[in-house]
Structure formats: structure tokens, C-alpha cells
Design a protein around this nucleic acid. Structure first.
Lengths: 214, 214
DNA sequence: TCTCCTTGGGAAGTGACACTATCCAACCAT
DNA sequence: ATGGTTGGATAGTGTCACTTCCCAAGGAGA
């Protein structure tokens, strides 16, 4: 199909598709002649994935390029490939300086991991972006002087572990490694707004149960 | 304290504080004379809250202004005040058009709410931003052709309901309404990156348990 | 008193980002 | 042959969160 048809079937303007092509988010089509390029179903699929990551997942274009690079990299082993793709996803920005709150938060999070028995996660402490994000979040709570420390996070951590088990069970239903990496990225990126929306809906439900609509 | 001291104690530059004052995120200090204004501990507290919402919670400045307006509005009743503050928080953008995927997703979500027995949430369906966010997320999954529909969300929804119960239990530990609204906003905004970081850590932990570090 | 530094305030500029409008030459249908 | 369409490149747009610059008014030391 030509660019115009790709645009029509995906709902993305031709100008934006051209922009994605330039940015390397989409492989160029097969060049038929100087003014015609041919795109196939795989291009359409990839374009929809890019759109979902950018619009629903709010990923910056540069991040999408990096993530897709890992997803496509067949030279990597299973764990490395998935880890690279997931670790490229955006997290909270690093703390500006190593202030007292951040150091204290790090200790709290370490203790939480011990309590939970997450020994594998502890081994990744120095490199995992998720660990650093958690430290930043705990430090932010502490800075505001509220009692929202790591000790209160333990039940939440157990809930999220249950979620992670569901995530991985689903990923395992896909046969090939490429599909698994892609679905893991999708599940993480699109699953996040879904989880947060479910949480807010659940808050509204529970709040109405306790206090009615007064 | 003067602007310079407020800046030093909060770690926010004077230029940025002046910007927040202009934007109405921070009440002006008590004007001592033409070149001096006096700020108190409450200003410092509010400034730290604004910073946390913007930097950790990634809220746009305009949204922070709106949310704080609701937090401060003593004329509203309990439920309305908290609802207004939480509903002002950013969600996924609205779908451009009412395409087939969105309509199908709406049906799926409605059915999910029935299955869960969330009758109160169903009553809010027409106005709750969380409901619309959920519909957008489901539609995005369906558009990509993966089997991630609402039926697979039920266990996640139950987990998030448990989280919501924890949230509300904690909010109830605060005595005044103003504090409760503020902690609800904080718990929602700062709790989201925390939950997501915990989920990713849990995924890493579970993945290492299943497959090791190969 | 006279200088010199600091202060609060406002206007304008910056840099990042995701597009989007405009051109242009090559093609294709009539 | 001719008028509209295509792909490709370049430059511009709008938004946003700051940040820089400038000014006049204080205040403090000589």
C-alpha cells in the first residue's frame, strides 16, 4: 500500500508518518520509483504499536526508537533483550543531588526488599531503574513530612507482586521470543494507565461504599 | 523569611518561585515594603507540595493550580471537594473520535464493572475521568490485536480494589477535612509512580525467580 | 550622605518536543 | 501535455516549564 493508504488505515496523518520515518520509528517502505513507496501489513502493525506507545503510553519519540531497537535486536539473549527493552522505558528523573532524604529512602527501600524476601531484586539494586524510581518516590513522601514510608508500602508491594505474576503468566502464553518481548513492553506501557485507572475507579467505588454520595 | 531563604530551604531557585507566584501556585508573601516580602512555614510547605506534584507527579502547572484550588475550597462538602480535586488530576487524553474500538471497549468495561459488582462506580460512568481512561486503555489494547481485553483485567481490578482500601484507610487516619483532601491527592499522585516502580521491581524479581539471570 | 549590593517584580527569551505546513521535482491519469 | 498527486526534505508552530535580563527601590557600610 502507499503512504496515503497507510495513513488512512492507521488514522495517522501522512505528515506524521513521514516524521516517524525520518525519526527511524518505522522502516522505510519498498521504493517502487522516485515517487512511490510500498508498505505492507507489518508496517501498519508497527505504526499502530508506535502510536500506542506515544499516545497512550506517553513515551517520548526518542525512547520509542530505543525500545523498538531492543525489541528488534535478535542478537540478544532472552533476559538481556527483555531487560534492555523494559529498562529503556521512562522512569522518574534521577534525584538532583544525594540529599539526606534520598539516602534515608534508599535504606528504607533496602529494608523493604529484605522484609519482602525479594533477594533477586536486591541483586539488581545498583542497575535497576525501577529501584531508583522507588527511592525517589519514597524520598518525595518523606520530604513532605507524611507518614508514607516504606513500612506502609509492604502491602502494596505484595499486591504488585501478584500483578507481576499475572503479567509474566500472560507473556508466557506467546511462543516466540520476539512476541514475548513485544507483549512485555506493551503490557508494561499500556498496562500502567490501565492499572492507574482501575485504582482510581476502585477508590471511587470504595469511597461511595463508605460515605455514599453525600 | 525572605524569598532568598525560602529558595534556599526548599531547593527551588528564586526565579522559579517567582514564576510560581505569578502562576498563582503560591500565595504572595506579606509585603513589608516595596522590595521585601515575608514568607512563613506554610509557604514553604505549600512550595514543597507544588514541587512534588510537578516534579514527581509530572502534573502540568495549570493542573496543579486547579487541584490546589479545590484542596483549598472550604465551601465544598467532603465528597465533592475530594472528588473535584482528584478528578482534576490528569488522565489519558480523550479519544479523538468515537470509533468502533472505543465503543466496544466501553461495553467491555461496563461488563467488567458488573462482574466486579462495582455498582457505585457504574453510577459514575458518565462523569468519571477514570472510567474514560480505562476505556481508552482497553481500546488501545484491542486496536493492537492482542488478547488483553477486559476479561483479563478482572484479577487486576481486584488487586487495585485492595490497594484502594489501603488508600482510604490511610486517609481516614487524618483528622481534618483539609488534611484528608491533601493526603488523598498526594497519595494518588505520588502513589502512582510508587506503585508502578513496585510493579516493575516485582516483575524483575519474579522473572529472576523463574528464569534466573541467564 | 554616598556608594554598592541585594531584593522583588515583570517582560522577554530558551530549549525540548511532537508535530505540521510548505516546497519541490517526479510521476500518473486523462 | 497537463493538472493533480506522491514521497521527501526543510523550516515553522504551539506548548510548556522554566530562566535570563532588566529595573527601581531598599538597606548597609564608609
Amino acid at each position: 500500500m502507499r503512504l496515503a493508504e497507510l495513513s488512512e488505515r492507521s488514522g495517522v496523518s501522512t505528515a506524521t508518518i513521514k516524521y516517524y520515518l525520518r525519526e527511524g520509528l518505522l522502516a522505510p517502505g519498498r521504493q517502487v520509483n522516485a515517487t512511490t513507496a510500498d508498505y505492507d501489513e507489518e508496517h501498519l502493525r508497527r505504526l499502530r504499536l508506535v502510536r500506542a506507545l506515544i499516545q497512550v503510553g506517553r513515551l517520548p519519540v526518542a525512547t520509542v526508537r530505543e525500545v523498538l531497537g531492543h525489541v528488534d535486536d535478535e542478537s540478544l539473549g532472552r533476559t538481556i533483550r527483555m531487560g534492555a527493552a523494559l529498562w529503556a522505558l521512562p522512569q522518574i528523573r534521577e534525584p538532583d543531588a544525594e540529599d539526606a532524604y534520598v539516602r534515608a529512602a534508599r535504606d528504607e527501600v533496602d529494608q523493604l526488599l529484605d522484609t519482602l524476601g525479594w533477594s533477586n531484586a536486591k541483586a539488581l539494586v545498583t542497575i535497576s531503574p525501577a529501584y531508583r524510581s522507588l527511592v525517589v518516590a519514597v524520598a518525595a513522601f518523606r520530604r513532605l513530612g507524611h507518614g508514607w514510608g516504606a513500612e506502609r508500602m509492604e502491602p502494596y508491594a505484595r499486591l504488585m507482586h501478584e500483578a507481576a505474576v499475572l503479567d509474566l503468566d500472560f507473556v508466557e502464553t506467546y511462543p516466540t521470543e520476539a512476541e514475548r518481548v513485544e507483549i512485555a513492553v506493551l503490557g508494561t506501557v499500556l498496562g500502567e494507565p490501565m492499572l492507574l485507572a482501575l485504582r482510581r475507579l476502585a477508590q471511587e467505588e470504595e469511597s461511595a461504599r463508605r460515605y455514599g454520595f453525600e
